[in-house]
C-alpha cells in the first residue's frame, strides 16, 4: 500500500495512460489502413436495394422482422425503448434482498438479446 501511495499522477499514471492512448490510436490507424472506407454508389431511387445498418444496429434490423403488421411498433419502438429504460434503471432494479439476482437477470438478457439478434443476420442472411 505504501508503495502505491507514492505513485503520482505525473509521471506514473500518465505513463500508463499514454500506453492506452498509444494502443487505441495505433489500433485505429492499422484498421483504417487495412480496411479503408469505400465510396458508395450514387443514390438510385428506382432500384431495389437492401441497406444493411451498422453492425451495432443489426439487432434492431433483425428484431423488426418478428413483428408483422399492426404489431410492427413493438419491434421498432417499444422493445428498444424498454431495453434503454431497463439499462438506465439497473441501479434501481438492484434494490432489496434479491436485487443483484434481478439485476443480473436483466443485464444478461439485454446482452444475450443483443448478441443473438446481431448474430442471426450473419449466420442466415
Amino acid at each position: 500500500m505504501a508503495e502505491k501511495r507514492n505513485k503520482e499522477f505525473y509521471p506514473d499514471y500518465l505513463v500508463e495512460i499514454s500506453i492506452v492512448i498509444f494502443i487505441a490510436v495505433e489500433l485505429t490507424v492499422v484498421l483504417a489502413l487495412v480496411y479503408p472506407q469505400l465510396i458508395g454508389r450514387q443514390i438510385d431511387f428506382s432500384t431495389p436495394y437492401r441497406p444493411l445498418p451498422e453492425w451495432y444496429f443489426l439487432w434492431l434490423y433483425q428484431a423488426v422482422r418478428y413483428f408483422p403488421g399492426r404489431w410492427a411498433f413493438i419491434g421498432t419502438v417499444l422493445l428498444p425503448f424498454i431495453a434503454a429504460i431497463s439499462l438506465i434503471m439497473i441501479p434501481y432494479i438492484d434494490r432489496g434482498k434479491r436485487g443483484r439476482t434481478r439485476a443480473i437477470l436483466v443485464g444478461v438478457s439485454l446482452l444475450l438479446a443483443f448478441v443473438v439478434l446481431t448474430l442471426i443476420p450473419y449466420i442466415s442472411p
Binding site: G40, I43, D44, Y49, V64, A72
Partner: peptide
C-alpha cells in the same frame, strides 16, 4: 453519421431507420 455520405446505402438505411418512428401509434 451513416446518412452523411449521401450514397445508396446511406439513403436507404435512413429511409428504413426513420420509418420505424412512423410505426408509433
Amino acid at each position: 453519421g451513416y446518412l452523411l455520405p449521401w450514397d445508396q446505402k446511406a439513403y436507404w438505411a435512413t429511409e428504413v431507420g426513420t420509418s420505424m418512428a412512423s410505426t408509433v401509434p
